[in-house]
Design a protein around this nucleic acid. Structure first.
Lengths: 194, 194, 194, 194
DNA sequence: AATGAATGAGTATTCATTCAT
DNA sequence: TATGAATGAATACTCATTCAT
């Protein structure tokens, strides 16, 4: 029982990871069940053993991605330092994800118009949770007089927007390393809140 | 001759505008020729009188949007003031577009995997032209010692990313007016370059 | 009246000739009204001033071709000589047509499944008339003891089949001139009836 | 494994045979996937499980027809007799096909404008192989002084043209049996080469 | 006489989904 | 569990035909 359940979950995750790849490459509509299955040397019929339908599969992709990101996020934020340091760290992590886990991370960013509302709601909730991490640090910084800003939400939007945009242009072959970007972005973005 | 040509162009523009609406709502794949036609009370067959195929139609959507944006952009930049003022103005215009012409402007932002290269190339060129406006002002500001920044390209990326992101969250029903946003964004974003 | 009628007829013939070209190149289904019109720098709408519909146009193509061929055929057969000479002459003329007027002549050969019966019947009648020319000469030759054959119809079929087939392989660039072919075919085919 | 493969192939062949029927009746353009499928009580979608697209299906029709014909052809030619006898036999077989397998055999004859070159080339090659059978026997007959002809290629063209034409007029309801035709054609056509 | 514009029926093709095995 | 096969609804695209001007 336990074993077979684990196997099931593992398989599901494999499928989800495959789906993420395809969806990021082709978009929701462009990704076909056939292609997702082929990536795993399965047939598309088999996918329906694990997922009710395409929407369900893609939905679970989003969920997995978001919760993974959150987890790692939280883990790295435990040791308390200055708010500036914390925000710098968060910026680095977010960029790390945006670059290294590009395919995965894309999903957090692109809102899918294709979800039915009952699927969309839980997704939006997780997204909000993610955003709240930033809000808390910014708010904390303001209260500790480290940050001078008066519109913490807007600041957060600017930060996220700026960082998510990296995917649009960053290419590892270009002259810039990930570390360069992390450093410069942290430097520039911190100017906003300070 | 002149008249019928004008009529043709007008009709084409109508179709393009309809298409932009649908595409922004549903994406390239999701937008159907049927729907685009229905919006104009036409039949899908008629679209093919004006456009070779779907790709052609969508391509011309992009072109129209981009050139419209560029035009207005340029017009408002003629009176020379300080670089800071110029950049502030550009930020305002860009946000204006991103909010008011959301449907339209989206197209500049979302990368389209769907275009064949011979369509994509001219589009990317216009996009670059657009970006160059920002580069020039930032570079000018640096040389005039108004801006202290050392990485003008990165700064431009941050600005564009931050502003384009507005579309993801801004709702006119929310508590914030467009003018609020323009003001706060300009203020915060200028902190980056100064 | 007369003049305008003549003009009308002339225009009709032009259209028919254009249609023949296209149909021979692409087949009945493959030929589009658009293409036929474009060849004449007209618009497809105009074709319907001259012809009721596509079937009507293509039908008249057949008619024109067949009667043209018949006419020339008859003209060249007036001076009476031996039946062998007459048949030789007919073979030459038929091959002449099959090669020189390839596009046009093709239509006699390919039976179009696409005609409705009321169109098909008159066509078949003309085709029969054409065949009868051969039958008469062969029959005459038999009665005059020039030909030994007992199955004149079959012989005619063999002759026509063999000659019509030329279109499938003859290319003017190849090593053989039209005259070569006429000569050899006449020689070989006459062996059949003699 | 073997079993399912065989089933697949069998199904494919069924589809091909159905397609041949329709195509012979209506031509390439006139045959619709819908009709081909309906003949087999399938839906048109299913066809695409077996064949990439219409061109692919029709292409495989040609291939099957041609190789079948060739096979039977060769099998019946093993016992060596005089060249005249061999050629007579070949004429009979060819006519047999042209009459009995009319639908099938038509495909060899009608030139298809519709194939892309990479499909057309292998087809033409097989067609040439087919023609070569005749060439060899005729050439052999010449060298053995059975035949007097000097233009073996032209003779082959005449033979094939004459025989292929049978389809245009032969109707089983007519007064003539297949055997009659085979006999008379063999008799008359042999006169050419002798 | 000609045409520009529109239409609608048809056609190939795709793909999520189902289900018997 | 997995899959092979089938389906049907959707979709881009074509084209003969119509008709007001």
């Amino acid at each position: 029982m336990k074993l077979s359940e684990k196997k099931l979950l593992k398989k599901k995750e494999e499928i989800i990871l495959s789906a993420i790849k395809i969806v990021n490459r082709k978009g929701y509509q462009g990704a076909t069940m056939e292609e997702i299955a082929a990536e795993l040397l399965m047939t598309k019929g088999s996918l329906y053993y694990y997922f009710k339908n395409k929407e369900d599969l893609i939905f679970q992709c989003h969920q997995l991605v978001l919760s993974n990101a959150m987890e790692e996020f939280q883990a790295q934020l435990e040791e308390p330092t200055s708010y500036e340091e914390r925000l710098r760290k968060m910026i680095q992590i977010h960029i790390e994800y945006a670059i290294e886990e590009k395919e995965t991370f894309n999903m957090i960013i692109k809102p899918d118009e294709t979800f039915s509302t009952d699927r969309l709601d839980p997704l939006l909730k997780i997204r909000q949770d993610y955003a709240r991490y930033f809000d808390e640090v910014i708010q904390g910084g303001i209260e500790a007089n480290e940050f001078t800003i008066r519109e913490p939400k807007i600041a957060r939007m600017i930060l996220l927007g700026a960082m998510n945009w990296i995917q649009q242009w960053y290419r590892p072959e270009g002259g810039m390393t990930k570390e360069d970007i992390q450093k410069i972005y942290a430097e520039y973005l911190l100017k906003i809140v300070k």
